[in-house]
Amino acid sequence: MTSTSRHGFHPAGVSDVGSPRARLAAFVTRWSLRPFTNVLPTTRRGIRFSRRIVATSMNLLGPVPKGTSIDLVVDGPVRGEWVRAAGVTSGPRVLLYIHGSAYVICSARTHRGLTARLSSSTGLPVFTVDYRLAPEHPFPAAADDIESAYRLLLEQGYSARNIVIAGDSAGGHLAADLIIENDRTGTPQPGALVLFSPLIDLDFELSAQTERTRKDPMISAASARALVALYTDGNASDLPRLRLDLALVRDLPPTLIQVGGAEMLRGDARHLHSMIEKAGGSCELEIWPDQMHVFQALPRLVPEAAHALERASKFVENSLDTADVQHDSKEQVS
């Protein structure tokens, strides 16, 4: 549950301010990383350099726990990997993870630490989609790859109600796009959505507004927009699969959104939360005070990372259990 405070949707049981380590991390990042990310060119050489830097940082600050098993998958258009924490075995439930970083920088490999900890906390195997990246593969390559991965899980026998879609940053946009496409094509929706710092507004107008009150420690809205533009590739910003609208989507899955109070995408998180509720869906929004973008991936840097994943895991368990009860009730009636 969340409560309303001066921070907005504040997670119950969480301090009104971030831990000293979290606040120090945001301060140091703002004066070290942000100036660098704001001048790094979006040339192919600049992108390659960014990919190396991010991969190294993710491994240092959120390493893969010992005992994690990784199985690479190439099945037609679907590329990715199964991530299972120590002791986790296959079962009827699964988590499909969509990584972020502006459609340009990260991969299934960079997110192994985060997906392994999600596997450990939920007890579920995680399939991370290694979707095609821009600028090599612009829109709609990434969105098409996510749709193919979801359908592959359905073809492999997983019931939609037992699939959880999770993702961060640009992965949030891709997850929302999948929900809209499922509705359009009559494909059953997943049992739940869990989104960390979701990007929704690809024009970054919401981010620019948020920046006026507090600058993001990692990057400016203008610089982030330049990266995403490598994916949108000159397409009109009001294209339906770029400017997403959930208003007419039926059967929206229950959704949890976690976002950092220090990041510019908290405006996107509020916007997505509002869209889902106006469409009649159920959505919990947690704004974690003083946290940076996708802080859940940085357990060595901020102690709140583990707490946030615990809350996400409880949400997943409750949502899937509820879906099972509702399914059983419908079968008894029929």
Rank of each mutant, 00 (worst) to 15 (best):
S274M: 09
T56E: 05
D324A: 12
I180K: 07
L320C: 06
G8P: 08
E317N: 05
S50V: 00
L152E: 06
R225T: 04
L248W: 09
G62N: 04
T128H: 04
L252Y: 09
A306C: 01
L40M: 15
S148R: 08
L195F: 05
A143S: 10
G267D: 06
P289A: 01
S159W: 05
I287D: 05
I163T: 04
V129L: 06
E286P: 09
A229N: 14
L95C: 06
M292L: 15
E331R: 15
I105K: 01
L193N: 07
G186M: 07
G171W: 05
R270F: 00
I287H: 07
G167M: 07
V249I: 13
G172V: 11
T115D: 06
L72C: 05
S282K: 14
L239M: 09
L199K: 03
R30G: 13
S120V: 00
E263M: 09
I98C: 03
S220L: 08
A305T: 09
W31K: 15
A229S: 15
P217H: 09
P63I: 10
L61A: 14
K278H: 12
R45V: 14
C106T: 11
G113Y: 14
T56F: 13
P188L: 06
R266Q: 14
D183S: 14
S334R: 13
I287E: 07
S329N: 03
M264Y: 13
V78K: 02
A192K: 07
A222Y: 12
M218K: 08
S32H: 04
S282H: 15
V194D: 11
F295S: 10
V194C: 10
I53H: 08
D177M: 02
E181G: 03
L256E: 10
V94A: 07
G80V: 04
S329C: 01
S57Q: 12
D75G: 01
E181D: 09
G18Y: 12
G123Y: 11
S15Q: 11
E147V: 12
G157P: 01
A149K: 06
D268Q: 08
P303G: 12
V64P: 00
R266S: 11
V129P: 00
S237W: 10
N162F: 08
R109E: 12
V54P: 09
G261N: 13
A85M: 08
N182K: 00
E310F: 11
